Measured scan of single mutants.
Amino acid sequence: KRPMNAFMVWARIHRPALAKANPAANNAEISVQLGLEWNKLSEEQKKPYYDEAQKIKEKHREEFPGW
């Protein structure tokens, strides 16, 4: 399985609240909304998620060399 990128790290945190706020929305609609919200963030706001994604990527590389 591929390691999460910065957007996926961010979305994992924000998806539950968005789903709760929009109970009639299906998963595809929630994903679209998450994408729109992510694109509104500044690079500075995204930086912690890029940092976390890098850590996940490095850990994945250690656990699965050659993947």
Rank of each mutant, 00 (worst) to 15 (best):
K1M: 12
K1A: 05
K1F: 05
R2A: 04
P3I: 08
P3G: 09
P3E: 14
M4T: 13
N5Q: 02
N5L: 01
A6K: 01
F7Q: 07
F7C: 10
F7T: 00
M8Q: 14
V9H: 05
V9Y: 06
W10G: 02
W10I: 00
W10K: 00
A11H: 02
R12H: 12
H14L: 00
R15C: 03
P16D: 15
A17S: 12
L18K: 03
A19G: 04
A19W: 06
K20C: 01
K20Q: 12
A21R: 12
A21C: 00
A21W: 02
N22P: 02
N22C: 08
N22Y: 02
N22K: 04
N22A: 06
P23M: 01
A25Q: 07
A25P: 03
A25G: 04
A25I: 14
N26K: 06
N26M: 06
N27P: 10
A28P: 03
A28K: 13
A28Y: 07
E29T: 11
E29L: 03
S31P: 03
V32N: 15
V32H: 03
Q33Y: 08
L34Y: 02
G35D: 15
L36S: 07
L36A: 11
E37Y: 04
E37M: 14
W38P: 01
W38M: 00
N39R: 10
N39M: 15
N39V: 04
K40Q: 08
K40F: 03
K40C: 05
K40D: 03
L41H: 00
L41M: 10
L41V: 00
S42H: 02
S42W: 01
E43C: 07
E43L: 05
E44K: 10
E44T: 07
E44L: 09
Q45D: 06
K46W: 01
K46A: 02
K47G: 05
K47H: 07
Y49W: 12
Y49C: 00
E52Y: 13
E52R: 07
E52G: 04
E52M: 11
Q54G: 12
Q54F: 05
Q54D: 12
Q54W: 06
Q54C: 07
I56S: 10
K57E: 15
K57W: 07
K57I: 13
E58N: 06
K59T: 10
K59D: 13
H60T: 13
H60L: 10
H60A: 14
R61M: 12
R61H: 09
F64R: 12
F64T: 15
P65E: 10
P65D: 14
G66W: 04
W67E: 15
W67C: 13
